[in-house]
């Protein structure tokens, strides 16, 4: 599944994004997920929780997660938390797919 975040990811939008993602993941036959953040205009630490939470859920089912389209700002936030060590970041969706 490829999930694109368009707009801002903060505590306010996190609830909606979480519900939407979890509902789609239940329906999806494949438990791998690529987060495309190239159209995300802002993110604070709420983004770490969203990605980490989804990663934990799909990991139990043998799924993998990766990130695409990080801005300098979001990369710094993810790096701080150590998240990129378990959810790798790629330049393009193609590259992420190859490494799934």
């Amino acid at each position: 599944m490829i999930a694109g975040v368009v707009g801002e990811l903060d505590h306010h939008s996190a609830d909606y994004i979480r519900q939407k993602l979890d509902a789609e993941l239940v329906k999806a036959s494949n438990k791998n997920i690529i987060f495309d953040l190239s159209k995300m205009s802002f993110m604070d630490s709420s983004g770490i929780g969203i990605i980490m939470g989804r990663y934990k859920n799909i990991q139990k089912l043998g799924g993998k997660a990766s990130l695409v389209g990080l801005s300098d700002q979001s990369r710094r936030i993810f790096e701080m938390s150590g998240l990129l060590k378990i959810v790798p970041a790629y330049e393009t969706i193609d590259e992420a797919l190859k490494n799934m």
């Binding site: 996190a14 979480r18 604070d44 630490s45 709420s46 770490i48 929780g49 969203i50 980490m52 939470g53 710094r76 936030i77 701080m80 938390s81």
Partner: peptide, 22 residues
């Protein structure tokens, strides 16, 4: 402290103050 959160059940990362400091 980095990664400390009083609300882990809410998908909170505990990185708020660390991000501010950075």
């Amino acid at each position: 402290q980095p990664l400390y959160t009083s609300k882990p059940d809410m998908d909170r990362s505990g990185m708020g103050f660390t991000v501010m400091e950075s």
